[in-house]
């Protein structure tokens, strides 16, 4: 087991390195740098003061070679120093830290709801494979697979916030102020994300479960006279959930993308809204910081998923 984890960790090092390098160079090589943004280039066609831009570049250390800047930025990443916003002077790490709990809560609630919908749906469709119930649920999953997150979010907002007025359409209430209000304000956003996530999970579970249900030990369990419910829950579900767990990890990237959209529709002050705002105001350091944190989070969570996979299924440890 330790060997397995070590192998996974060694694989992590080049990936982390590449991911940080890309986050840096992507944003860095694109036209227009921080100095231009500070001097106001690109916003209008006013007089460009080259000397002033040079001055700002020197101030920020932008005149150093790109490799040197990358390593000084990378050192900052590992110590949590991403620089600061040139407009408000706020530290990037601080701005992200304030908003991270919102996004995390959104992602956790969404993932929880998605699994909550997907497991019963997956079990029922696998058990009733080919029957009417299966076809109904499969058709519904198909419809949800075709709906982009922003359309689902808009429909939810229209139905439950505008028409029925059950939940607030926008706004964020911290959990410490009003736990119930906080959950209410997170219900629609997390539901919107869960609704795009569950069909994928449910289909994966269905496929694996159908394969498992054809195994001999399931027949054996049936022959022993165990109830169908017991067989599904105790014998079939665990060996069928490996792919599900991997897919949850892989889908995290999509979930983060969805969170960016859902946060801006429901006006939740999370990392996603921060990213959209930073992009529009050309806060390059902020954008770099957010991207690298998202990418590293994705890599680490998939590492955890891989390890979990090894714990659940001893065969993959080799």
């Amino acid at each position: 087991m330790l060997k397995y984890i070590r192998r996974k960790l060694i694989h992590l090092i080049p990936i982390t390195f590449a991911v940080t390098a890309l986050s840096f160079f992507f944003v860095d090589m694109l036209p227009g740098d921080v100095a231009d943004a500070i001097a106001g280039v690109g916003t209008d066609n006013s007089v460009i003061d080259e000397a002033a831009i040079e001055e700002i570049r020197k101030d920020l250390g932008l005149n150093r070679p790109v490799i040197v800047r990358y390593f000084s930025w990378l050192a900052g990443v590992f110590t949590g120093e991403f620089g600061k916003s040139y407009q408000t002077g706020q530290l990037v790490s601080e701005a992200i830290a304030i908003r991270l709990p919102v996004t995390l809560q959104l992602l956790i609630m969404a993932q929880f709801l998605a699994v909550l919908f997907a497991i019963p749906a997956g079990i029922i469709t696998a058990y009733k494979a080919g029957k009417f119930t299966d076809k109904c649920i499969t058709t519904i999953t198909f419809a949800f697979l075709a709906a982009p997150s922003f359309i689902i979010a808009i429909i939810l907002a229209f139905l439950f916030a505008v028409t029925l007025n059950w939940f607030p359409a926008t706004g964020y209430i911290p959990f410490s102020e009003d736990p119930l209000g906080n959950l209410r304000s997170f219900t629609l956003p997390s539901l919107a994300l869960a609704l795009i996530e569950w069909p994928i999970l449910s289909r994966v579970l269905r496929n694996d479960l159908i394969e498992t249900l054809q195994q001999d030990y399931i027949l054996m369990a049936k022959a022993k006279g165990l109830s169908n419910f017991y067989i599904l829950m105790r014998h079939a579900l665990r060996p069928s959930s490996f792919t599900l767990i991997t897919v949850i990890g892989i889908q995290l990237g999509n979930l983060i993308s969805g969170a960016v959209i859902v946060e801006s529709i429901f006006a939740l002050p999370g990392v996603g809204t921060l990213l959209v705002n930073s992009i529009h105001s050309r806060e390059i350091l902020m954008v770099q910081g957010i991207i690298v944190i998202m990418a590293i989070a994705y890599v680490i969570i998939n590492l955890v998923v891989d390890i979990l996979y090894g714990v659940l299924d001893p065969r993959v440890r080799e």
Binding site: I15, V19, L22, S23, F26, V27, G253, N254, I256, S257, G258, V260, I261, L275, V276, I279, V287, I291, M294, A295, I296, Y298, V299
Partner: peptide, 10 residues
């Protein structure tokens, strides 16, 4: 590792 919409947006 880069969420697709985030990558595209940037």
């Amino acid at each position: 590792a880069f969420p697709n919409i985030v990558l595209a947006m940037c």
